[in-house]
Every structure is written in structure tokens, then in C-alpha cells.
Amino acid sequence: MFIRSITMDEVKLACTSSNECGAQEASSQKDTLLDLHNQIAHLFCTRLSENSIMVIQEKLQLMQRSSYYLEIQHDDSLPTADQQQQTLNLSDSTVLSLIDQRKLRRAMTLANTQVKLLLTLLGMLYEEIISGCRELEVFIIKYDQGLVDSDMAASTQEKLQRTHQYLNDFESRLTRNLGPLDLQNQLILNTGQYPMPQLSASLATKMPVMFDRCESRVTSNAAHLCWGVASQQSKEPCQEFEIHMKSLHPTADQDQFIKSTCQSYSIHFNNLTPDRYYQFSVKRVDTVNLVYGLWTDTIILKTVSVFK
């Protein structure tokens, strides 16, 4: 049997080759970590910047504070470009007399559930985005300290991909239409005398009502309050608002609680007591087709003192 001896040159060549492979692997890993670092840094400058996070939070709050309404459309014929589906007014007694109230309540419950699911999902996505932001920040700190290993890099890469997906899902849910609702049964009472009109149901969203804290003001015995609708540039006509006013003085009389409704975007209260705190709240007047709306804006103002 012939056994070839290994020369010293071959040993050096093998060692050199092994060292080169190790160096290439280390260089490749360093490039991978640097690329991951740059991806995260770019995300922090764009979609996860401080301003972007504030915008996401504000969008979530707007959705949580909005009012949601069930709308019933008469859609026997497809609407043309200049003719929309006719929305039925559920507060109209004639319309209500045609609708099966038991089925309407089911539709309202379905709509309420759909809104709650959407708001819960948006809240969960927001929490996941914030959680991902914290974990990605930890990676940046560890990277700068030279303490990142391959396992941490792999988990961070996965977290980065999931955070991108959460951001995409959050944005898509904000713009996705809440309707139409899938009604298994027609809402119209079937008397058998006439053909039943075809109805469809959808959810309409109205942005929250909020006090204009710059325009609202008090004197020694009066308060002038102004409000508007979030994200709404012009004032929509035919909107009805409910305003509450009460004194926060511990010995205030019961008649110092006032409830008013108006169709304007401002109201004036007279005969207030000087040097006293008053609490005011405003919201839209509840309607029969309101399925979800918890937000009421509140402001506390103190009347001016009167010195003798």
C-alpha cells in the first residue's frame, strides 16, 4: 500500500484556504449586519420616525372616537354616475313601519360587532408596531456596542419584516370600507302583497366632534363655546349637537346642570357664577341608526373673578 506524505507547503496552503474562507464568512456576516442596521435606520427615518408614530396614534384615536352609523340603501337598480343609491332614513316612521324590527336589531348588532372588531384589530396592530419599534431600537444599540450575534440578527430580521407587515395592515384597515354588511335576511316585512324592494346595508363613519379651545372663552358670568369636526375643513350643514353644562362647585344647585341641543357649531351660556369651574361636553345627538359612538369631548373652564 502506497501512502503519500503531506508536504509542509500543502499544510500551509490548506491553512491559508481555511483562513480565507473564515475571513470571507466574517466579512459576509459583517455586511449582512450592516445591511440590517441600515434597513432599520431607514425605517426609523421614515415610517417609524417620531412624527410618523404620532400620526399613527392620532389616526387610531380618530377611529376610536368616531361615530358609526348603519345606512340602509334601496338598490333595486344599479346607480349611475349621476345617481347614487337612495339611503333610507331610519328615523322616518313610514320607513320603520316597513322594516322588520327584529331583523333591524340583528343588523345593528352585526354592525356594532364589526366596528368593535375593527377598532380592536387597529389597537392590536398599533401595539405590535410600538413593540417592534422598541425591539429594533435594542438591535441598533447592541450593534453600536458590537454585541450582535447571528441569532439576534436572525430574530431582528424577522421582527423587521413583521413590523413592515403591521404597518401595511394598519394603513390598509384605515382605508378599507366598512360596508356593505352581509345581511342574510331582507329587512323588509314580507306581506306577500307586493314585490319586496332590495335593500343593502353599510356602515358610515363620522369624525369626532371636538371643542375649539382657542375660540371657546368665558367671562365672569358667561361662556361662549365653539366646536368643530376633526379633519373637516368646512362645517357640514344640518348637523345636530348635544351640549351639557354643569357647575363643579361642591355646593352647586341641581338646576346648574343644563342640557342643550343646537344645529350650529357654537353656543352661549349666560347667568354663570363668577370665579367658578364649569364643565362642558359636546357630541352629536344620538340617532336611531347609531351603532357605535362613545366619544364625548369635555372641557373645563373657570369664570373670571369679580373684585369689589
Rank of each mutant, 00 (worst) to 15 (best):
N221R: 06
S231Y: 04
H249I: 00
Y194G: 02
M210Q: 07
I267C: 12
K235T: 03
R213A: 09
P274W: 08
K246N: 05
G228H: 13
K235H: 08
N271S: 13
S200R: 09
E236P: 03
E236Q: 10
S247N: 07
A223D: 05
S200P: 04
L272G: 12
L199I: 06
Q186V: 01
L225Y: 01
I267Y: 14
T191W: 01
Q233C: 03
K259D: 10
T191V: 00
L183Y: 15
Q239S: 10
L203Y: 00
C214K: 11
S202Q: 12
V209Q: 03
Q198L: 11
T273G: 00
Q186G: 12
R213W: 03
A230W: 09
F241P: 09
S260P: 01
P208D: 04
M245S: 08
S264Y: 11
F257I: 04
F257H: 14
P180R: 12
T205K: 14
L248C: 07
A230I: 03
G179F: 08
S220M: 01
E215G: 06
D212M: 05
S200T: 01
Q232P: 01
N190K: 10
Q256C: 13
C226P: 00
I188E: 11
Q263W: 02
H224Y: 09
I258E: 07
F257N: 11
K259P: 03
S264M: 14
K259R: 11
S247Y: 06
L187M: 14
L187C: 14
K206L: 14
S231I: 01
D253K: 07
N270Y: 12
M196Y: 05
Q198T: 15
W227D: 08
C238P: 09
C226G: 00
D255V: 05
L181G: 10
D182L: 13
I243V: 10
Q186N: 14
Q254H: 10
F257G: 07
A252H: 08
F241E: 13
F211W: 05
T273V: 03
I243A: 06
Q256T: 08
S231F: 09
M245D: 06
L225N: 00
Q232G: 07
Q198F: 12
C226Y: 04
